[in-house]
């Protein structure tokens, strides 16, 4: 019996020492990790709306959509959805434009795009920030070549050429191109509603 107790104690001791050291390292790094995330988003916003130097978060609630709950996941199925967008102010504190994140499932993954919009409601710049599409095909949505096709586009033009719009889709990656374009179009619509809703 004593033998097992000794084994257990040694294990416990090592675990406690290890946990203590890790708690210490965690303490040092936790803040930096949080800060990194915020910084990354800020960087992406600056990239798509270069005139802006300060961003202010706004939200607008969207009409509830009946979402089928996934019985296997912990996803919240509350009725209210929120559209999150940012107002961008330049150095002189003048409104320079807006940014929002457009998101839609593409071919094999959720494709997230940071969109910068000028005051005239045309696209300033976009940047695909998250995707796991097929390398060489859908993944090319993250290239400058594809993203540049959106410069200056406004609401009406935001459809892929196959659907009658002005965005030339990627060769062999129609689904991904459509996902990006349609998600941006929907985001624009929400942005217009939100901006017109508040009297600025």
């Amino acid at each position: 019996m004593n033998y097992f107790i000794k084994l257990g104690l040694v294990l416990l001791l090592i675990t406690v020492i290890a946990s203590g050291i890790l708690a210490y390292v965690n303490g040092i790094t936790a803040d930096k990790i949080k800060a990194n995330k915020v910084l990354a988003e800020q960087e992406a916003r600056k990239k798509v709306l270069s005139a802006a130097s300060r961003f202010e978060k706004h939200t607008k609630s969207l009409p509830a959509v009946k979402k089928e709950p996934n019985p296997l996941k912990n996803v919240e199925v509350t009725g209210d959805r929120q559209f999150v967008y940012y107002l961008g102010y330049d150095k002189d504190d003048q409104l320079a434009g807006y940014t929002f994140v457009a998101s839609l499932y593409g071919y094999s993954s959720e494709v997230k795009t940071m969109v910068g919009v000028d005051l005239d409601m045309s696209i300033s710049k976009i940047k695909v920030i998250e995707q796991a599409e097929t390398p060489g095909l859908g993944a090319n949505a993250a290239t400058a070549d594809f993203q540049n096709r959106f410069l200056g586009m406004d609401q009406e033009q935001l459809k892929v050429d196959k659907d009658g719009g002005a965005i030339k889709s990627l060769t062999g990656a129609t689904i991904t191109s459509r996902a990006v374009t349609n998600s941006i179009a929907e985001g624009m619509k929400n942005l217009k509603d939100a901006v017109n809703g508040e009297d600025k």
Partner: peptide, 8 residues
């Protein structure tokens, strides 16, 4: 990471 509940 993929947010599965217990059954999932």
């Amino acid at each position: 990471q993929e947010d599965f509940n217990f059954l999932g």
